[in-house]
Design a protein around this nucleic acid. Structure first.
Length: 649
RNA sequence: GCCGCAGUAGCUCAGCGGUAGAGCAUUCGCUUCGUAAGCGAGUGGUCGGGGGUUCAAAUCCCUCCUGCGGCACCA
């Protein structure tokens, strides 16, 4: 048999050979470094035999692939579980996979793990690595496996054996005295695990991801090829923390939140300035793209929510309002005087659509609203201004005919991609969610809906991935996922086809045939919500916004108080030119003022002293640079105004 | 909502049974200075709310609220 190595060389053997033997034959250095095999593209244990002709790669820590990281992390999870069971006998194991940055293991134990426990577990993990316990795979029959785990008191593992498809082998991995039910592959021994891991935190997690099940204790860790990689990751986490919109929002005085209005935002002047700039920007785009803007009530009678189906399906998330008079009337007329704060704008938009008799000539009707919605989100879901209970959607509904879905979807995609690009997000992904298991409408209808969206994607040249079964019950959808400056993904935009709500709220138009037809609604958003989107912008830019978005665009400041009259003149000129400028004529040293305004992330600092006053110039200092540029006041104004222009205007 | 952790001055945090602290910010003086912290003084807290234990509670216990990290949720 012939084994082809990555360099193209071929080694011949008379019979099956194990990976560690192969590695040893190639060289002692490789034998020592070898972690696992990739046989014809499939990852295998190092000790597994290679039975016939194959392309074989021997993986070491140097291998740049994600496979090696997953291997390390999966092993780290096992080593952690072994450490935990040594330290805390009676603890049961459940699952312990690798994750994007590390691993976790879910345990069953009455006592909660404390942060001190984590330190102990980590220390014991190092001991287990030092022990260099050989790791061995073993296959056994189903009943034996169940008995084995039952005897060990591992009820969850025993239960899981039954879940493994009957055509799959049951494999056990042993390291030292410890064992786990696992498909593998794994490292040849615990000593091969790089000591570049760190336990991060402990949290709750439900057995099999279902909130109805028992809650387990999940211990998270991170693991890397080397100490350097680990340190780089920990540094990245620190960087992320510095970008945190909650921290920057506070530091820059953009907004605050307080317990009397949990999950809501108090926008301060600077934050609201940004908000308005963003709103102005997108409103301009919508107007140019043929949208009309509306405004609908916050508080709407329960009857409408019953008709739309929200009362039945979304009620737990709705704020219900009533008053004394309403209560009195409620007694005699149970159908009225209970209101709800709108959790969505769509039913209200249909009300506007329904005023008067619509013609097919009115379609497509693109109805936009910066609609403030309230949803009672679970307390654990709240997060800064990203996940709130009162938020403003950049919402719109496109009322159109079936035939218009494709063209409208293409048009929307163009609008959205242009806006993302102008905001500094070059890179975004599209996910296509198709019919879910529980859904309204027959398959023929879904075929048409999905077909129209697929066609739109094709026409617009959209590269998308499928998200099977994740569509709304009323229709398929596209989701637009942004990638920010440090590679995190954020789902913001959405385009959803809906044929249920027009039916429920009886929207109709008269077609060219003179008969009444049901319009289709396209629910669509680009930011998703202003609150969340601003949070993403804050984190994307670390608060160092492009000029047009910056709450304070420029500060004029003086070297000495002699320059104050000229500084006032410069400030007034900026303000009159439409720039958001502050004036700082305090008595502090210029170094102090530069530091202050740099920390406040003011993009442009205009420094003036005697020289500038005399020559009618300004000295410009940009945030993030210590270079100075001297310009005539008039030129500086023109330059800044052009830089501060809202994108696309 | 669930599990764990936390809440002390405007901010960041120390104190963890025995009279509430620091730095920064703020206020007031002085300083007029050329690009990331001049000097000095003062003000500032029912130690998240409520209850309990104790001679004595920021500190220990119970409970509620809020936040943080996950889980679940996010038409």
């Amino acid at each position: 048999m012939a084994i082809t190595l990555p360099d193209g060389s071929v080694r011949r053997y008379d019979g099956p050979v194990t990976g560690d033997k192969l590695a040893a034959d190639i060289g002692p250095g490789l034998a020592k470094a070898a972690l696992a095999l990739r046989v014809n593209g499939t990852l295998k244990d190092l000790k597994s035999p290679i039975a016939g002709d194959a392309k074989v790669e021997i993986l070491t820590l140097k291998d740049p692939s994600q496979d090696v990281l997953e291997l390390i992390r999966h092993d780290a999870a096992h080593v952690m579980a072994e450490a935990v069971q040594e330290l805390y006998p009676g603890t049961q194991i459940t699952f312990g996979p690798s994750t994007e940055t590390g691993f976790y293991y879910d345990f069953v134990r009455d006592e909660p793990f404390t942060p001190e426990d984590l330190a102990k577990i980590e220390a014991r993990m190092r001991e287990i690595v030092a022990r260099d316990e050989p790791i061995a795979r073993e296959e056994m029959d189903r009943d034996a496996a169940v008995r084995l785990f039952q005897d060990l008191g591992e009820k969850y593992k025993a239960e899981w054996v039954h879940e493994i498809p009957t055509d799959e082998a049951i494999s056990i991995y042993r390291q030292g005295k410890w064992l786990d039910l696992c498909v593998g592959p794994h490292l040849p021994s615990t000593g091969k695990l790089p000591v570049a891991f760190k336990l991060m935190r402990v949290s709750g997690a439900y057995w099999r991801g279902d909130a109805k099940n028992q809650q387990l204790q999940r211990v998270y860790g991170t693991a890397w090829r080397s100490k350097q990689e680990l340190d780089a990751y920990l540094t990245l986490l620190e960087e992320q923390e510095k970008r945190d919109h909650r921290r920057i929002g506070k530091e820059m005085g953009l907004f605050h939140q307080q317990e009397e209005a949990a999950g809501m935002v108090f926008w301060h002047p600077k934050g609201w300035t940004m908000y308005r700039a963003l709103e102005r920007f997108i409103r301009g785009r919508l107007e140019r793209d043929g949208y009309v803007e509306v405004k609908t009530p916050q508080l709407v009678d329960r009857k409408l929510w019953e008709a739309s189906g929200h009362w039945e399906k979304f009620r737990e998330n709705m704020y219900i309002a009533e008053n004394e008079e309403g209560l009195k009337e409620f007694v005699t007329d149970p159908a009225s005087r209970i209101f709800a704060l709108k959790p969505m704008n769509c039913p209200c938009h249909v009300q506007i659509f329904n005023q008067g008799l619509r013609s097919y000539r009115d379609l497509p009707l693109r109805m936009a609203e910066f609609g403030s919605c309230h949803r009672f989100e679970p307390s654990g879901a709240l997060h800064g201004i990203m996940r709130v209970r009162n938020f403003t959607q950049d919402d719109a509904h496109i009322f159109c005919s079936f035939d218009q879905i494709e063209a409208e979807s293409v048009r929307f995609y163009k609008l959205l991609s242009g806006i993302y690009r102008d905001l500094g997000f070059e890179d975004f992904k599209v996910k296509f969610s198709d019919r879910p298991a529980v859904r309204a409408g027959d398959d023929a209808l879904w075929d048409r809906m999905e077909g129209a969206l697929h066609a739109a994607c094709k026409t617009a040249g959209i590269d998308y991935t499928m998200n099977p079964g994740e569509g709304a019950f009323y229709g398929p959808k596209l989701e637009f996922v942004l990638r920010d400056a440090i590679g995190r993904d954020w789902q913001c935009g959405t385009l959803q086809v809906d044929f249920v709500l027009p039916e429920r709220l009886d929207a109709e138009y008269v077609g060219p045939d003179g008969a009444k037809h049901r319009p289709v609604m396209l629910h669509r958003a680009i930011f998703g919500s202003f609150e969340r989107f601003i949070a993403i912008l804050i984190e994307h830019y670390t608060g160092k916004f492009p000029l047009w978005l910056a709450p304070v665009q420029a500060v004029v400041t003086t070297i000495t108080s002699d320059a104050e009259p000229y500084a006032r003149k410069v400030h007034q000129a900026l303000t009159e030119a439409g720039l958001r400028a502050d004036l700082d004529v305090g008595p502090e040293k210029i170094t102090y003022k530069v530091r202050e305004h740099s920390l406040a992330k003011v993009p442009v600092l205009l420094v003036v002293g005697a020289r500038e006053a005399e020559q009618e110039t300004v000295s410009i200092r940009r945030l993030g640079s210590n270079a100075q540029e001297s310009l005539a006041l008039r030129d500086a104004l023109a330059k800044l105004c052009s830089e501060a222009r809202v994108p696309g205007t």
